Computed example of a mutant assay.
Amino acid sequence: MQQAASSVSQSSSPYFDEAHSADVVNARMGQNADARLRQVMEILVRHLHAAVKEIEPTHEEWFAAIRFLTETGQMCTDWRQEYILLSDILGVSMLVDSINHRRPSGATPNTILGPFYVANAPEYENGANICLDGKGESLVVAGRVTNIEGTPIPNAKLEVWQTNNDGFYDVQQKGIQPDSNLRGVFNSDAEGRYWFKSVKPRHYPIPSDGPVGKLLGAIGRHPNRAAHLHFIVTAPGYDPVITHIFTPDCPYLPEDAVFGVKRELIAEFNQIDDSDAARELGFAAPFWSVNWDFTLASSANPTPAIA
């Protein structure tokens, strides 16, 4: 009996052993498991067991990891998703987004959505001012929406949102900021043009009062996001673009807490010291100006391979 058991390869044994732990766990999956779920779970188990073997955690360290995950879940609410924040600061959100949005050369690249998008923001005519609290340095944003060939896309929908000059989104300060402050929806005109008034964005910290913030502090990282405006640009027949534009003078561009900065998304912000131009816009001089064009890829375009 003992001899028969020893003739069975350890890797095919149903009994746990350290050397073949991942194989033993993966072998327990039923034959009727969904094929994609099976593939995902086999890879996760394999890499998780490899990491544990490399780290060799103590029992105390493993329980600390479990407490961290428990506290992360307990921090989640209807408007705050701490697990998304964890995915963000580990660079996983950006990696998943990059894998799912491989576009032709010249198309505006995606970046992460972020946790503070709100659907059904107010719709405005071009030229409206989305800053409702009067704080910050005045900014005018203008540009065009075109396809890869440069043809204007009329009636493209542009959703925009940003923090106020104190570094908070409106939903973080209910009763303090006006509802829908620094949020708006615009549509490109017949020539694909859009424009609106706002304030120059500033850097701000991601929520750091929970377990993810404590983790950042423990590994010597700051919680700051580089200054940016959020956009979602959509038009029938084209891939939607979820992206940011970043100010070029922000000190956190090379170390954005969620790895959201792409070189192609750093815009040119110009300070305009022209009293007449400011008066026409309803601003005081000086004010800031940024021109930014969005280039959409046709949804019929095949996804290019990544070398």
Rank of each mutant, 00 (worst) to 15 (best):
P251F: 03
G127V: 05
A267T: 06
D273S: 11
Q172R: 03
S9W: 15
Q3E: 15
R263E: 11
G30D: 11
K157D: 01
H47A: 09
T303W: 14
S138F: 10
F168M: 02
E137M: 07
M29E: 10
H49M: 13
K135P: 06
T77H: 03
Y117H: 04
V96K: 04
D34Y: 11
A65K: 13
I272C: 02
A297T: 09
S188D: 04
Y83L: 14
I99Y: 11
P207S: 08
G210V: 14
N100K: 07
P223K: 06
R202W: 13
P152M: 07
T77C: 01
A226D: 03
P211Q: 10
R80K: 06
L216M: 13
L37E: 15
E54A: 14
K53R: 11
I245H: 01
E82K: 02
G73M: 10
K214C: 08
L253T: 01
S87H: 15
D88M: 08
Y204V: 02
D23G: 08
G106D: 11
R183Q: 10
Q10R: 11
D17Q: 10
P211K: 08
K53A: 13
I130K: 00
A121F: 04
S289I: 08
H47C: 09
F116W: 06
A267I: 05
V160A: 01
E42L: 06
T58H: 10
A235M: 01
A297G: 08
P251I: 02
N270K: 14
P223L: 10
G167S: 08
D170K: 02
A33W: 15
P302L: 15
V199Y: 05
N224Y: 09
P154C: 06
H47N: 13
L95E: 09
E61T: 09
L95G: 03
T303V: 15
A284L: 14
P302V: 15
W292C: 00
H20V: 04
D239M: 10
P286Q: 09
N155T: 07
G143N: 02
F63D: 12
I66K: 06
K214A: 13
D189H: 02
A218W: 09
